[in-house]
Amino acid sequence: MTSHRYVPTGNYRRRKATSLIAQGVMVLAAGLSVGALFAVLGFVFVQGISGLDLNLLTQTPKPPGEAGGGMANAIVGTFIVVVLACVLSLPVGVGAGIYLAEYGRTGLLAQLIRFMSDVLTGVPSVVVGLFAYTVLVLPLGHFSALAGGFALGVIMLPTVTRATEEMLRQVPDSIREAALALGFEQWKVTLRVVLPTAFNGVLTGILLAVARAAGETAPLLFTAFGNPFWNLDPTQPMAALPLQIFVYAISPYDDWHRQAWAGAFLLVALVLAVSVVARILGRRTPARF
């Protein structure tokens, strides 16, 4: 019954082996990627939780070399700097996104803005810090939370712009037409109908941008600068969680290393929480980023 036709051709055994080996390599690579995550997160969790104490959440730093103290001012500082960044970047980013989606879909100017916005995404955050330094630190004569917020705002801006544009574009034209047919002016259609329809998606984009900005360190080094004392004045230097982690990590003191891990745990928890909320919101809208 079995003729030579039913026997696999000569190279088949080798092909099959190649296929299996290649698939094994893929599985291994995926394992490596996930393994890296567990290695990083695992250490942050174990070291961080064991280093965590109440002082960390309630006290300000002790002078160098002294054990104890905490990061309370840095936690609040991160919150303030991120809020400043949002205040500065959201109006511009959402407005620019509205322009791209509603007015300049195909125009040359819109293409240019889109391109520059993508370019802005690629500018290293430390370079954005330099820019913020020249714009706000030099004229004011000293470091300030405002400059830090400005730097983070510039980093958030392109993400917010493109997210707004993408989400507004998902709103079908029929909804715009329906609103126009009711006699709304176009700007009201945009602000009252189109933007609310896309709200969840836009918020997802904003939250992802916030999550990234909250973890940024480099642009704060010479803008917000850091501050060992309580400060709520945005025109003065201000502590931030990532800055504190950096300073403590490269210090020679064991107790500061412990606090660096604990701070890293807090920062990762914060960033992951915001990302997870963003993703849950994003899942309710059809679009993905």
């Binding site: 019954m1 079995t2 036709r5 039913y6 696999p8 051709t9 088949y12 099959k16």
Partner: peptide, 19 residues
Amino acid sequence: LNGEDIYAPGVDPVVVRRR
């Protein structure tokens, strides 16, 4: 396929698809 079950255990789908 010519009397042989292409779903029999040990039959490789890759060989079936070539035929």
